[in-house]
Every structure is written in C-alpha cells, then in structure tokens.
C-alpha cells in the first residue's frame, strides 16, 4: 500500500512559521508529501490546519523556500499560479460562485486553470466539465444555480471544481463537516476514487473514522506544532494526540 520512499516528494514544507501579530499560528512545521499519497491532517480547532493549507494554496504568503512543490519554490507565487501548477483546494465553508450554474462553476476552472489550447472549443470544454460532473454524480444538477444545491451537493461541486483545474495535489478542507453518515461515505468514496487517479490528496477532517479509513499517513497539529506523524493507528494511539483531542 505505502508508496516507496525513494520517489521525490511532491510537496516539501520546511521550517514553515506563520505569525499574525503576536500569535504564532504555525511554528516551524516541516513535512514532505509523496506523490500519490493519501495524507490525513488532524488537530483540534485553531491548531493551524487551515492556516497550513492557506500557506500551501497561496492565500497567505510565507518566507522563501518554506513551501516547495514539485521541486520548485512556490512561496512567491500568487494563488492562481499555484492552482495552474497543480494545487487545488476546497473550502471549509463552501465558496461556490453564486451567480453561476453548477457547470459554469467548473467552466471557470477550465477557462483559467488549465493551459488552454485555442483549438479546444468551448463545446469541448463543456463536455469535459460534464464528464467531471457525471463522475461526481452531479450531472443532473449541471444547469441548476449553485445557490439551489444541498450541503452535500455543494461539497461535491467544490471537489468537482477543484478537479476541473486538473490538480496534482488536492486539498480537501473538512469536506464532510455537517454531512450525514451516508453522505460522509459518499464523499469519502469520491476522494478515494480521486486518489486512484494518481492525485495526491491532503484531507483535513474531524471525523476520525473517515481519516482512519482514508489516510495512509496522518499528521496531528496542535497550537501550530506537529505533535505526531505516521501511520493512522500509531498517531491515534499517541498520548499527546489523545490529550490534545480530549483536552486532558
């Protein structure tokens, strides 16, 4: 199951520190993510998980060489360029383009994130968008306004939009929060199938069963520091992880 360690890491985080005023949100975080890996990121609220992915996806800027993607320093790149290089994400609270239909939401990604070949017609791109939607089970909602979607549909649409950017690395930020257990399974299956398509996935999640089932490796953050990293069972068994979660 575990990919060989010999391959060069897809994403290298090294010595990443992020402060807001006097508050240290991330404190000297270093981790390598291997290509094709299914990586779980856990930690209590306010532990720095979302800050970390904001630093990776470009919403926050960080010091040079702290974030290296496919061997290139991306810390000076704006978010949209990082997206074009292959980093896609979903948001903790879904952020659809509200004035658009579901398929139009995906068209934004196809118009902007994918290196466009002028010969590829709009009709062809529409087809691509539709096939991604079918893969997510959203084809019937393609022409519905994004505002009419249910919570689970919104989550799926965000993943579909992220997929439309043709990512190498997909970061899913609590895509299962607020869903019923059957819906959690649906989204989890989706993420698994993406990982099978050679996409590296970082999953932030509070639902432990999901993390355990999904991840090949889990990292736990607390107060901006890595307190445990390794196989899911080991991390769960870790004393400090349990303390952080149970607050004892």
């Amino acid at each position: 199951m575990t990919p060989p360690d010999t391959s060069a890491p897809l994403l290298q985080i090294s010595g990443l520190t992020k402060r807001f005023g006097g508050f240290t949100a991330l404190d000297n975080v270093s981790v390598d993510i291997r290509p094709g890996e299914r990586f779980g990121l856990i930690g209590p609220n306010g532990s720095g998980k979302t800050t970390l992915i904001n630093c990776i996806s470009g919403a926050f800027r960080t010091e040079a060489r702290t974030v290296v993607f496919r061997g290139e320093d991306i810390t000076q790149l704006p978010a949209h360029v990082r997206t074009r290089r292959g980093i896609a994400r979903s948001f903790q609270i879904p952020r659809p383009f509200r004035s658009m239909t579901v398929v139009e939401n995906l068209m934004v990604a196809l118009d902007f994130a994918v290196a466009t070949d002028p010969l590829v017609s709009a009709a062809h791109r529409h087809e691509t968008a539709m096939s991604i939607l079918s893969g997510m089970g959203l084809a019937s909602k393609a022409d519905a306004s994004a505002t009419t979607l249910s919570q689970v549909e919104l989550r799926k649409m965000e993943l579909a939009r992220a997929m439309a950017t043709r990512p190498k690395l997909l970061i899913s930020d609590e895509a299962m929060a607020g869903l019923s257990s059957s819906e959690v399974d649906e989204v989890l299956d989706l993420l698994m199938s993406l990982a099978d398509q050679d996409i590296t996935v970082i999953m932030i999640e509070h639902i432990m069963q999901a993390v355990m089932r999904f991840s090949q490796r889990v990292m736990c953050l607390d107060a901006g520091k890595i307190i445990a990293i390794g196989a899911p069972n080991e991390v769960m068994a870790n004393q400090r992880v349990q303390e952080a979660y149970l607050g004892t």
């Binding site: 704006p78 978010a79 997206t83 509200r98 658009m100 934004v108 994130a113």
Partner: peptide, 11 residues
C-alpha cells in the same frame, strides 16, 4: 462572487 475562490480556481 468570491475573490478567494476565484483565485484558487486559477483566475
């Protein structure tokens, strides 16, 4: 609609 989401979708 959403500047951050747009940016993260490659815009």
């Amino acid at each position: 609609d959403d500047e951050l989401a747009a940016e993260c979708t490659g815009v």
